[in-house]
């Protein structure tokens, strides 16, 4: 009986973890299918966002671009449009974060991560999102930063002061709280359309991607160690009392879970079948490491949802712990990569 239970344990564990595959090719195919599925959902939600932004812009345009007049005449409709844009944004972002660890880690699609989610404006020295954004009125914004976190999130949640047109009681509670504002409709429509266009471009390139071992390993070893940076962004966000304009819509920990979940999926599906064939102990150790990492982030997020207020010091300590686990994982994945003659790019 004891033997039976012991032999069942690994099977139960395998079943509880995402995306294990029997063979490497099957696993790579699973990763690609998973990514395309969420990419399609990203496009759909971006299109909804564009629709909501256009409805918002139409309400403003109906009053000759006078935001005050539009608010006085169509306040509830404008508030509804803002809420819709925010909801669409969250849904689109959820889809993207789920695949970010994969998109950003594959060399041929990494540029989309900068454009959609992680890139800096051209005023910064590094990790600049290399694209220009054309707005409906013909204005061209040169290298404006990522569509999610540099443009739309601060715009929709009212932390981008330069594009606020009118402070307004959006939720109707009788007072104007933080982030309650009507914002530039021209930018909202342009950015939402940009989101649709670039999500589709990603979809095209992802569909053309020929899954391969080098990219799978590269994705895991380049993206997993970024976990400490995300904890740093969480620490600086308004969720922990910081003053950052970005990461205001929801806790950055949700993004961390998505990104690290993507890395775990890539490992379990596409790499584990390779490593496990000749070194089951190493494979088991890496798998356990990912479980620990995901558990740490999940528990931290659960504590945050339960109302725990983290200090900067606690955030730093948790970030260090996550980074340590990530480094152990990556060291082992690199050892496996060397053993299998993998070419790590980047």
């Amino acid at each position: 009986m004891r033997c039976t239970l012991l032999s069942l344990t690994p099977i139960l564990l395998l079943a509880a973890q995402p995306g294990f595959a029997a063979t490497e090719s099957e696993g790579l195919a699973q990763v690609k299918a998973f990514t395309l599925e969420h990419n399609a959902a990203l496009v759909a939600n971006a299109q909804k966002m564009q629709g909501s932004a256009e409805a918002y812009a139409a309400l403003v345009a109906a009053h000759g671009g006078d935001y005050k007049a539009a608010w006085e005449a169509d306040g509830p409709k404008l508030a509804e449009a803002v809420t819709a844009m925010r909801d669409n944004w969250l849904a689109a972002s959820n889809e993207y974060e789920t695949i970010e660890g994969i998109v950003a880690g594959i060399p041929s699609t990494a540029k989309y991560d900068l454009i959609l989610d992680a890139g800096n404006p051209g005023t910064e020295e590094e990790d600049v999102a290399e694209y220009d954004l054309t707005l409906p009125d013909g204005t061209v914004l040169s290298r404006p930063g990522s569509l999610f976190h540099s443009i739309t999130e601060p715009l929709f949640w009212g932390t981008d002061a330069t594009h606020i047109k009118l402070e307004a009681d959006l939720n109707g509670d009788g007072k104007i709280g933080s982030g309650e504002a009507l914002f530039d409709a021209n930018l909202a429509v342009g950015a939402a359309k940009g989101m649709v266009d670039w999500s589709k471009a990603l979809e095209t390139d992802m569909a053309a991607w020929k899954p391969n071992r080098d990219d799978a390993f590269t994705a895991v070893v380049t993206m997993t160690p970024t976990v400490g940076d995300y904890f740093g962004e969480w620490k600086e966000s308004q969720f922990l009392g910081g003053e950052g304009d970005a990461f205001v819509a929801r806790s950055r920990l949700i993004d961390v879970l998505g990104i690290m979940g993507g890395c775990q999926r890539m490992y379990n599906s596409a790499i584990s079948p390779v490593v496990g064939t000749d070194d089951a102990a190493l494979d088991g150790s890496i798998t356990k490491g990912f479980d620990e990492l995901i558990a740490l982030v999940s528990e931290t997020h659960e504590r945050e949802v339960a109302g725990n207020k983290f200090t900067s010091e606690e955030a730093d300590a948790l970030g260090s712990e996550a980074q340590d686990i990530a480094e152990r994982i990556v060291a082992q994945v690199l050892q496996a990569a060397a053993k299998h003659g993998v070419d790590i790019k980047g």
Binding site: E327, R328, V330, A331, L334, Q335, A337, A338, I344, G346
Partner: peptide
């Protein structure tokens, strides 16, 4: 190193 393959 850029890619750290040695365990801490």
């Amino acid at each position: 190193n850029r890619f750290v393959s040695v365990q801490p």
